[in-house]
Design a protein around this nucleic acid. Structure first.
Lengths: 121, 121
DNA sequence: CAAACGGTTGAATAATCGTTCAACCGTTAT
DNA sequence: ATAACGGTTGAACGATTATTCAACCGTTTG
């Protein structure tokens, strides 16, 4: 029977769906993992940062040259590099007045490669 | 006090760096690809959408049940489902009053799996 | 038929995010 | 020491974006 009063704004779930929901909930990762995943993907969700990652793939590059390559200010590039740094996606090495950035590991390449596969479908 | 007597605000690149920039530029994907990549990752860069993808992994689910599972309104879920639909990340099948959503293909699973690897390091 | 439900949609609001601008720091050279 | 350069940073602005709210559509049921 109907267990709830009327004027409930949300839909009433019958037994089958409730079971369905329970099963799905049990298979879900914890909330923290979901946020970490989203935050991780958010990093790649900007064309400037993607461009930077491609730029420093291969040889390390200094901020000034990245800025010139992308046609952006050093400030804008530095801001994005900070985000990439905080996410451990890039490494840097100081040399005199310059700071040279490179990819942190091959993991980054793998993920972008997978995404390229999907786009090129 | 800062004054600008010389009028070159950007740094002057010597020959070595200019060559470096040229090489990096030649290895870069075209601009359109960079935008497509960023847009693709942007989809995953939201915890609600990530949650939805996990929810419909396994068995297909209707909007109402997804909304209950995530503790959100049907409207909010539907808006996000539209984005996932437009990106071909999910499929849907109408059945009576319900619309059942499921993952479009295994590609989605692969990419999330890769990201999980990186997070769990 | 009309009411009820699942689902979608557009406009509005609030929060998030990227770039610009100006100032600043450390290193190198004058 | 002073100036110039590469790089970083914080605040402010503009753009983007997720959620809410209200209205609406199609299907099923009474």
């Amino acid at each position: 029977m109907k267990e709830r009063e009327e004027n409930l704004p949300v839909c009433e779930h019958d037994e089958v769906h409730a079971e369905h929901v329970s099963l799905a909930r049990a298979a879900m990762p914890c909330e923290e993992t979901l946020y970490e995943l989203a935050d991780f993907f958010k990093i790649f969700g900007d064309s400037t940062r993607i461009s930077i990652l491609f730029a420093i793939d291969g040889e390390p590059m200094c901020v000034c040259d990245i800025a010139e390559l992308l046609g952006m200010t050093k400030s804008a590039v530095s801001h994005q590099l900070k985000i990439l740094r905080q996410s451990d996606l890039v490494r840097y090495k100081k040399s005199g007045k310059n700071v040279y950035y490179s990819l942190a590991d091959d993991h980054v390449r793998d993920i972008i490669e997978k995404a390229l596969d999907h786009i090129k479908e």
